[in-house]
Design a binder for these strands. Structure first.
Lengths: 230, 230
DNA sequence: CTCATGCCGATACACTGTATTTTGTTGTGA
DNA sequence: TCACAACAAAATACAGTGTATCGGCATGAG
């Protein structure tokens, strides 16, 4: 009898912890979308009964909060720039990148207040460089405005991406060929400006559009920093 | 045997149509949240079997699209201002008001491209006043940027509102007393700027905050209209 | 050795969206 | 008037969900 014959020790399931749960949940969602992140599937991936999870999580919403915070670890810059504009821009870009890696993030963004440690660190990193440049309320407003833009822009981008994927067409083609429906709509003549936009608008890629909008918002912030409110 | 004895004709159920379905769905969601808008409950409210709905919609996502578009009818201004700034502001305010009336809208905003007739009309109303003031791409970017801000700001506002409601505390108290957790977090000293914000920030109400951010974004748009991109 | 305690898997419940099957009704041709 | 076909609607079925509850088992205390 060699070691090879010896039965494997019954591979004690790794002791469960939040971290392992969160990692499994993210993996599932990355592979098959947020809908695939069911407690049962997460548990199955950890080779554990579904109810085991309730020792670490008290509700599914809590799991959502945890995975969102986990992704914020990717968003946090390894070393933060001292310049407020670069800090906000990095925050925006890194969030967008994270959403492109984890599309399900778009479904969750802005859905609940995020108070996890990583999210707090991200807020700190964006807020700190504004310190001293203006009053606190203006600084807060700046971060919130950028963050609101972010949420909306990312959600739209991912929504469009999914729609394109579903039809298999390029965005432009998709707009042009949205069945007879859109054409009929535009043909009614009720939407002249829109019609021009659809037919004459140049196709811009999502990233450029994101960056442009972001620049606008950052310019707006800059203007307010220059002359804080009376 | 008089007419009075005669049994009532069996009250033919009103012939179903999309409109009735959408109205029922919205009512349900208004009363008990988006989760209450299940196909079975909608059908029950119409005194009809669940499968009947599939004669009018082919999937639940489609129902979501329909209810979102229906709400856009409330967003569309009865008479649109010719001034682009007022048009965009009206769009923003009316969307926010709609979301306060129908909180579930926050869950759906930005989740899918909205191409319904009412949504198209809203886009037209916001786009038209920009016509001639700048090139088409800039106009589109303006509308999209405002819309992105809107989505994000509304989602955050509703999320905070729900959180406050859940704890029964005012926002300020909630921040201050977020269990031992937040205090402990801040006490670590890792988040100095955040700590100042939480403790020294004046409480601003949601509407004012929304308006301020909106003004910033509109200012940014105005700046771009003044000198269109090279 | 006995008993109590706490953990963990299995089971159970009330729901969900949707596919499929069964039933009923109504119009039609003979 | 009857038989049948076509279609609309209801009922049933299925695979899944989040979560409450129950039962057994293993481990530690007395």
């Amino acid at each position: 009898m060699t070691v090879w014959d010896r039965p494997e020790p019954p591979t004690r399931p790794l002791p469960l912890d939040r971290e392992r749960i969160v990692v499994a949940a993210i993996a599932l969602a990355d592979e098959a979308g947020l809908a695939a992140m069911s407690l049962r599937k997460v548990a199955a991936r950890l080779e554990v009964g579904p109810m085991r999870l309730y020792g670490y999580i008290s509700t599914k919403e809590e799991l959502f909060d945890l995975v969102v915070d986990e992704v914020h670890a990717e968003i946090l810059p390894e070393e933060q720039p001292g310049d407020w504009r670069e800090a906000l821009r990095a925050y925006a870009r890194r969030t967008r990148q994270a959403a492109l890696r984890h599309e399900w993030l778009a479904d969750l963004l802005g859905g609940r207040p995020t108070m996890g440690p990583n999210a707090l660190a991200v807020t700190e990193a964006t807020l700190a460089p504004l310190d001293g440049l203006t009053d606190l309320d203006t600084a807060l407003r700046a971060v919130e405005t950028v963050s609101a833009y972010l949420t909306g822009a990312i959600r739209r981008e991912i929504a469009n991406l999914r729609a394109e994927r579903a039809t298999g067409l390029s965005k432009r083609d998709w707009q042009r060929a949205f069945g007879p429906y859109l054409r009929r709509m535009l043909a009614t003549g009720r939407f002249p400006a829109l019609t021009k936009a659809v037919y004459d608008g140049t196709e811009v890629d999502a990233e450029a559009s994101f960056e442009t909008g972001l620049d606008w918002v950052l310019d707006a912030v800059a203007a307010k920093l220059a002359r804080p409110p009376a």
